[in-house]
Write a protein that binds this DNA or RNA. Sequence first.
DNA 1: CTATATTTGTGTTTTTAAACATAGTTATAT
DNA 2: ATATAACTATGTTTAAAAACACAAATATAG
Lengths: 233, 233
Amino acid sequence: MAGKNRGIIDLSSSLTDIWRVLSDVEREKLRGNARILHFKKNDLIYTEGETPKDLMCLFKGKVKIYKRGVGSRNHIIRILCPVHYFGYRAYFAREPHVSSASAFEPCTVCFLPMELIEQFLRKNGNLALFFIQMLSVDLGVADNRVVSLTQKHVRGRLAETLLLLKECYGLEEDGATINIYLAREDLANFSNMTTSNAIRTLSNFVNERIIAIDGRKIKIIDEERLIKVSRIG
Amino acid sequence: MAGKNRGIIDLSSSLTDIWRVLSDVEREKLRGNARILHFKKNDLIYTEGETPKDLMCLFKGKVKIYKRGVGSRNHIIRILCPVHYFGYRAYFAREPHVSSASAFEPCTVCFLPMELIEQFLRKNGNLALFFIQMLSVDLGVADNRVVSLTQKHVRGRLAETLLLLKECYGLEEDGATINIYLAREDLANFSNMTTSNAIRTLSNFVNERIIAIDGRKIKIIDEERLIKVSRIG
DNA sequence: CTATATTTGTGTTTTTAAACATAGTTATAT
DNA sequence: ATATAACTATGTTTAAAAACACAAATATAG
């Protein structure tokens, strides 16, 4: 795990979701145990097999959660934007991490000891519900995603990924360009296809005037079509 | 939702996991609100789009949780054996069911109102942890499964499924036959392949003396090989 | 700023799995 | 008990995606 520097950050405004459901005593205790780390582009935040110790909260930057697959093919499980919590599932399941997390771009992450969190949530029903809800939503997303990834064709999968990226990271000032700078390989690993297929399919979308590309920047020209392609393949 | 008859069943011995973490007051309240229903083979227990109302606990029988996919292709997300809880995820995520549950064979299911459960777990940290753990384990399983289903080849996926079935439902008295009676179509839907591919690949496994089949009954002859095939494809 | 490594783009070939067709078999309902 | 429907088995064809190859463009490190 790389990362350094203790930033001067207002926890109460950054950890909003959790902060809201904590008591004053809990807040104080948490404040004293929070560590804030910075990661450079491509830095590993945690990795498969590691023992989970902290609840992590992405304050700034973009993160991918991914798994080693067959051969050297990675699979991106999900992508994160601020403010989202991660890294806690494996702790609760009492098992090592089954995935890795790394920074797409420079990130600020807050680390909170899971032991403390577990201690709190045993007494604090709202905090417990907070985790139950996050896990429940993520499990629902996973259930839906597996059908898309296994049953849709390449075009449908890539279209879905582009829409997810837009959903997660939003658009730039032009109201069309997806606000993330991704290698074709990441696009492929998030869409269950080879890099060449991602490149080729992206080119096809350009020819069909569904998107426009400028290097790694992707502009959505015809969202209706993209949604349709995502649905029917 | 089909089902009938109020069975005479000892809740305390059947709901062991939850029962253990409840207070006496909670137990009494739950006892008064539990409904026990019986389902016939192939009966639907709940279905996609329905509003989740109950925590369900499988007392007896075998259940599949599945999703409608592209075209008429279903995807089996997971299979359940007694005693396992299900149907609560969507309630916690505050959304309709994204999956359906149906009975592989005659089943006994206990229904507990989710409102009551949520009310309890807000005060009862152990109950909250119980759900957090179940969700965390299931999410980890889902994360692993998606890589298998998307990256392994047909042989590897089917081998993995056979091993999962053995894990879940165990073996018959002969110590080799998997204790479940499944159509090839279900096998296919659980392994992300077409029915013909499930049939063909099963035949191949028979020719290779990895398994033996007698109608729908599958006997594992060479588990080592099956594990190897599951790993390397 | 330049050299080197990585990524992107395209064409071609090969492999894998789906789709289709059809016959035989087994369940199921009446 | 028999008719009907559903499932299983196998061969053949077609389509989709992976693998491979290589040139061009672009990042990145020193």
